Simulated scan of single mutants.
Amino acid sequence: MKKKVFLTRALQDFALKELKKRYKIEVHSGKSPISQDKLQSKIQKIDGLICFPYDTINKETLKLAEKLKAISTFSVGFDHIDTEFAKKRKIRVGYTPEVLTDATADLAFALVLDVMRRVSEGDRIIRQGGWKIIYGADDYVGLDLQEKTLGILGLGRIGKTLAKRARAFDMKIIYHNRNRLTAAQEKKLGAKYSSFDYLIRQSDIVSVHVPHTKQTDQLINMKTFKKMKNSSFLINTSRGKVVNQKDLVTALKKNIIAGAGLDVFETEPIDKKNPLTKLENVVLAPHIGSSTQETRDKMAKITVENLNLGINAKKPIYSVGY
């Protein structure tokens, strides 16, 4: 008898075809994210779960999982899953890091380019009929990237890859990380270690690449913004809750900082009534850091393989805790 697998949302056709060969699968087709009531109802009778970063797999839900052997999340983050409790219940948890490194670093750098050269702002001006005259010598100017200081907060896989992009643009790179790199690694990346406070004060662009944890929750707040240069920019492609969004709106409105490029938000999705959408000095992307065809296909393959391994009491390719 085939084991039962529930997906909170569909994967690509090739991945679903692979799953159907091995399991009896059910795909949630309603509103996303799935409601806790429905998830709790489904989780009681399944052997494997495939979820996404906006799903909440908490202790209360996992307590109901009588047969569950594996959770495979289609994401690099796993803060939406109570991994400690899953470990206690001997539920394998797999995730999909590494394969989305280039795509996310590319998007982070695209946001840097966009906010500094005001590309999206210009697009809006043209579409709204605001380009009435040929701009003069000092009209609608952006900023060069060369010789600007990029402060990378969290120099993991994505942060390191972003540093490579920035180096090609002759930017100065400083970073803050829980663990300092070796001198050889710093030399290779052209990056200098700094304290958190120094990075915040000295950077022309602060790019956030830390996971969302108790320690990083609301890490970037008004106290942080007031230390930043009023000519500086914030880029966030990590997790929305790392930044206090209310404080960010205030900082942007009052020109405490010059602008921001955001791919993630405290609550997603955001709508046109969100105060961020009313500001010209912010570029908004709908959480598309990993959203390239090549990357998403790789993520789907790993998601399926993680599930296959975990459901058979084997360690996933990328495993959390157990």
Score class of each variant (00 low, 15 high):
Leu155Thr: 01
Lys229Ala: 12
Ala108Cys: 11
Gly321Asn: 15
Leu262Gly: 11
Ile25Tyr: 01
Ile50Asp: 04
Ile71Tyr: 04
Thr303Ala: 10
Ser238Leu: 08
Lys273Cys: 03
Ile270Gln: 08
Asn308Gly: 03
Phe109Cys: 03
Asp139Tyr: 11
Val112Glu: 13
Ala163Leu: 02
Ile256Thr: 15
Lys229Glu: 14
Ala251Ser: 15
Ile125Leu: 10
Gly289Trp: 04
Val5Ile: 06
Lys88Arg: 06
Ser41His: 03
Arg92Glu: 05
Tyr193Cys: 03
Ile57Gly: 05
Ile43Trp: 00
Ile50Thr: 06
Lys20His: 03
Asp138Val: 15
Ile288Trp: 06
Asp37Leu: 08
Val27Gln: 08
Lys246Met: 13
Val119Leu: 13
Lys273Met: 08
Lys21Val: 09
Asp114Gln: 12
Lys164Val: 02
Thr277Met: 12
Cys51Met: 09
Ala313Ile: 04
Leu16Gly: 06
Gly48Asn: 02
Val141Ser: 12
Glu26Leu: 04
Asp82Phe: 07
Lys69Glu: 00
Thr250Glu: 15
Ala258Val: 14
Glu186Phe: 00
Lys87Pro: 02
Arg201Asn: 09
Leu189Asn: 01
Asp123Arg: 10
Glu66Val: 02
Arg117Lys: 15
Ile302Asn: 04
Leu155Gly: 00
Arg296Asp: 11
Ala105Lys: 02
Gln293Leu: 14
Asp263Lys: 10
Lys172Gly: 12
Val119Gln: 05
Pro53Ala: 07
Gln128Ser: 12
Asn244Asp: 15
Asp263Phe: 09
Ser203Cys: 12
Met228Gly: 15
Pro53Leu: 12
Arg157Trp: 07
Thr149Cys: 13
Gly159Glu: 04
Gly130Tyr: 05
Gln185Asn: 02
Lys187Cys: 00
Thr295Lys: 09
Ser194Gln: 03
Arg89Pro: 01
Leu113Pro: 10
Gly190Glu: 02
Ala313Glu: 11
Gln185Cys: 00
Leu62Gly: 03
Ser238His: 10
Lys278Val: 06
Ala258Cys: 11
Glu305Leu: 07
Leu7Phe: 05
Ala70Asn: 02
Lys148Cys: 15
Val141Gly: 12
His28Trp: 14
Gly48His: 00
Ala166Cys: 09
Ala108Tyr: 11
Phe74Cys: 11
Asp123Gly: 10
Leu100Cys: 09
Lys88Thr: 05
Val208Ser: 10
Arg178Leu: 05
Lys314Met: 01
Leu153Pro: 04
Tyr318Thr: 08
Ile34Arg: 04
Tyr318Lys: 06
Ala15Met: 02
Lys21Asn: 11
Gln128Lys: 09
Lys241Gln: 09
His212Ile: 01
Ile200Thr: 14
Thr250Ala: 15
Lys3Pro: 01
Glu266Ser: 11
Asn177Ser: 06
Pro97Arg: 06
Asp271Leu: 05
Lys192Leu: 08
Asp144Thr: 15
Pro33Phe: 05
Leu276His: 10
Ile288Lys: 07
Thr213Ser: 00
Ile220Tyr: 13
